[in-house]
Design a protein around this nucleic acid. Structure first.
Lengths: 350, 350
DNA sequence: TTTGGCACTCGATGACCGAGAGTGCTAATC
DNA sequence: GATTAGCACTCTCGGTCATCGAGTGCCAAA
């Protein structure tokens, strides 16, 4: 959208004001707070223009203007400037993330906590997409007769396991053999290329176990491998939304938290989004207000980016906040958290 | 507390009415709704008595009465009758729980979901307390140089694992030996009797690895064992509380969800409670309003019971709801869910 | 011990009013 | 042609006020 410079200034000022005060901004207060060199009447005209273009809205006749979704979009796309965080905030975030010790899962959870705390919004994380990573090890460990643990090790340094049932009388040795055979056959294969047939073909006639039993074990192993690929979405800090003036009416608050509670829905949406802007690898995905096609998020924005593990495997991290947010600040917060997370992941994986 | 029969009836009626209408109940409506054979004036006297005894409260001079915490307590302890669920609800719950397939964790989560849905409140589950269970297997699996997976198998049929770092140049064979030695030495020991010394003593001089390296491995193994004992609290359905009239004021809602968000706090409280009424094994723990010493739960009640795994290992399941709840109904809901959960756990463990 | 009656209390509801902030439009000005 | 001053108009918000109704406590009679 092509706006003349003054219109840009006006829109910028209105978004800034509205974001910080949560009150519709009128022509007069605009002059007061920003050093506009024209009269209020002129601004009124400009504002009327911006409204016609669909960038501003009026809650009612005699109130000031607020940005429309389209207005925010314009702001985000071409008006705002992202500035680095204050050193204070930087050290706070860094230390917070460093202090979350443990495995990858804990690290991601720690980053999510930190992000939610820093922004005051809901933070959102997706477990890494492992489709493209390949299998480096597969072990089946006998736990007790009839029960085994399948351990799947992936290229990205991720280890997953699943407790499975196996026929009662299969022995330790047999399991060991099966596990070796499978491993030998599918090591190095990307996860999404492994099918039940791939797994089964590993064993053709190589053992003395009846086919029907063998198939059961193979199926369980296959299921364990496939499960490693499951996408987990984790939301943190839902309660923080209640303190925002944007959701101070019970109705909105209830609806929002209800929608957030269904994290499967959010997960599905993210998946969809990812498919949509594939180009945007490694950059930001921003969805504002009605752009989000899920029910109940009209007053929200999603901002997500990716974090990186070894071998190009990526997950998502971001926030769900009110669309009336300081986009530039939130983006730099996410960015900083993401960088710290990337670093820590590298350290964990040596 | 010894009440004459009519006072009991009156208190019973008031609790019932207040729970279902959420409005202070007055003498007149009490006669209308319940077939009391006396005049409103008489009831007023009775109510005044009950108030003096601390069982009822007045929100303000010219309103009806509401039960005090003590009133609810009396109701729960000696007035209410727990009735079985309707067959409809029973099948609904049963099916819901049966449909949550997978490992123990998924099963518990499924039960929690079901319970929250059935009651409309927050459900609460605690992972089993494994202190008293003993170790049946310990395997250390080499993942790659410098990284190993410690798998701990406990008597209750629980399998836990932890990814640990080990010195880079320790070999497959060495790890195997170490793991065997530890396993041999501490199998059968209750979890809470295993100390770092127990673990270390297993290896005294039995290998060719320098002590300093060995100690690192042993420490990691020890940490993995100890981690198996971690108590996880899982809350589900927080958003449902927003729909209750009890928390329809933004302030209360915010406070409640804020408190609930700190699940560590809830976990600590439950632990404390468990220590307190040890006698009550297998029965109900009920805490009403101010009896709960945590901040932010003045208008809530906790009701929990235990679910059972093999070998006497138990976990907790229950709800956090408004203290203005249908106790008898909720208790039978919890009870039914618990029974179903117990059953499914048995099936999973064969 | 129970009851009818009565004065009193207090929150909820709705009408009303004025203040304040903002707008759109028009006509004059640069 | 863009800008500005001025003005009539609109709409929300907050406060006041009166009224209503449900409920209480207490007293005197049954």
């Amino acid at each position: 959208m092509d706006l003349d410079p003054r219109k840009k200034e006006v829109l910028h000022a209105i978004v800034d004001d509205y974001v910080s005060t949560f009150e519709p901004v009128g022509s007069k207060s605009l002059i007061e707070r920003h050093g506009f060199d024209v009269s209020s009447a002129t601004l009124r005209n400009e504002m009327a223009d911006l409204e016609h273009m669909g960038l501003l809205e009026k809650p009612h006749t005699s109130a000031g203007r607020i940005p429309s979704d389209k207005g925010y979009r314009e702001y985000v796309d071409s008006l705002m400037k992202v500035e680095p965080l204050s050193p204070d905030e930087q050290t706070k975030i860094s230390e917070n993330i460093k202090s979350s010790v443990g495995e990858l899962k804990d690290l991601i959870k720690g980053a999510a906590d930190t992000l939610s705390q820093a922004t005051g919004f809901v933070s959102l994380t997706c477990s890494p997409r492992l489709k493209k990573s390949y299998l480096t090890q597969l072990k089946i460990l006998m736990i007790e007769p009839g029960k085994a643990l399948v351990v799947v090790v992936l290229s990205a340094g991720v280890v997953k396991d699943k407790l499975v049932r196996i026929p009662n009388f299969i022995t330790d040795k047999q399991i060991f053999d099966i596990s070796n055979a499978i491993e030998k056959n599918i090591t190095g294969k990307p996860l999404d290329e492994i099918t039940l047939i791939t797994v089964s073909s590993a064993l053709k006639g190589g053992t003395d176990i009846p086919d029907s039993l063998l198939n059961q074990v193979l199926y369980e192993a296959y299921a364990a491998i496939k499960q490693a690929d499951r996408m987990d979405v984790y939301l943190e800090g839902e309660h923080r939304m209640l303190s925002l003036p944007d959701f101070s009416s019970m109705g909105r608050a209830t609806q929002l938290l209800g929608s957030l509670a269904d994290d499967g829905m959010v997960a599905g949406y993210l998946n969809e989004m990812e498919a949509q802007d594939k180009s945007n690898q490694d950059s930001y995905m921003i969805r504002i207000g009605q752009e989000i096609t899920l029910e109940g998020f009209d007053d929200c924005s999603f901002i997500t980016t990716t974090y990186n593990m070894a071998d190009g495997v990526q997950g998502n991290i971001g926030v769900i906040g009110p669309k009336r947010m300081e986009y530039s600040k939130v983006i730099s917060q996410i960015d900083f958290v993401k960088k710290n997370l990337d670093e820590q992941i590298k350290i964990i994986n040596e």
